[in-house]
């Protein structure tokens, strides 16, 4: 059997500022994920940080441990690789006061 693989667009053309997070995504079938964040336009203000979060139930979230910078310039892409995340996965972000970023977030999942 070929390995299941899926590209999931989790957030498209969403404007992030302050604290933000993607919608909960169930991917218990996958053993690994690469999370990409692409800036759809130049960020406003200073850059921020993204962190991967996991959850026992899709409602209560804890940091998985992986963090990575948010992209700053148009079409810049940043990413994190994660494994052993269980079932629920999301990425959250924190931007400093006055900063904002329009993103495309994709999960690339593999069994």
């Amino acid at each position: 059997m070929i390995r299941e693989s899926q590209t999931a667009v989790i957030a498209r053309n969403e404007r992030w500022s302050g604290q933000a997070a993607t919608e909960p995504y169930e991917a218990g079938w996958a053993s690994e994920a690469v999370i990409f964040i692409r800036a759809l336009a130049d960020a406003q203000g200073a850059g921020g940080t993204a962190r991967v979060e996991i959850s026992p139930d899709g409602m209560r979230w804890v940091p998985e441990g992986a963090t990575f910078p948010l992209p700053v310039s148009k079409d810049e892409v940043t990413f994190a690789r994660v494994a052993h995340f269980g079932n629920w996965l999301r990425v959250s972000s924190e931007l400093p006061d006055g900063a904002a970023l329009t993103v495309l977030v994709t999960f690339h999942l593999k069994a």
Binding site: A8, V9, I10, A11, R12, N13, E23, Y25, E26, A27, G28, W29, L40, P56, D57, G58, M59, N87, W88
Partner: peptide
Amino acid sequence: LDSMLPGYAQHSQAMLSTLSTW
């Protein structure tokens, strides 16, 4: 992408779920 109607812009990817409950 700003030209997309808001009704469609809210859509996101379906999932494969085991109907996980807390």
